[in-house]
Amino acid sequence: MSIDRSDIEKLGELARIHISDENALASAKSINEVLALVDQLQAVDTANIEPLANPLGARQRLRRDEVSEGNQRDAFQAVAPATEDGLYLVPKVIE
């Protein structure tokens, strides 16, 4: 698999970053190098191999449904850039 300049533009849009024209070409080149590596890995036949979630085959432990976390809003909001009326403030979201 390889990608071209228009893929880079799309990735930039999805990641919400501006990629300049000169950077688009350079980025395409270096990403293609990474993809070549991935192609190499994909050559391995894994058809009958279960994905490995844990080397020891461990299973998820469950927690009892009991409230253990109290209200620490003041502590958390002390490190937030902006808060008001108990809310975290962020740049306006327009969908």
């Binding site: 009991e66 409230v67 976390e69 209200n71 958390f76 108990g86 809310l87 975290y88």
Partner: peptide, 26 residues
């Protein structure tokens, strides 16, 4: 449930904003 799916914070409806959002939820 009484608590969140991955944390021990309460799920009770109508609490003051962010009083039931613990470190894991954040």
């Amino acid at each position: 449930t009484k608590t969140k799916i991955f944390s021990g914070a309460s799920t009770e409806f109508g609490a003051a904003p962010n009083t039931q959002a613990c470190a894991i939820d954040l």
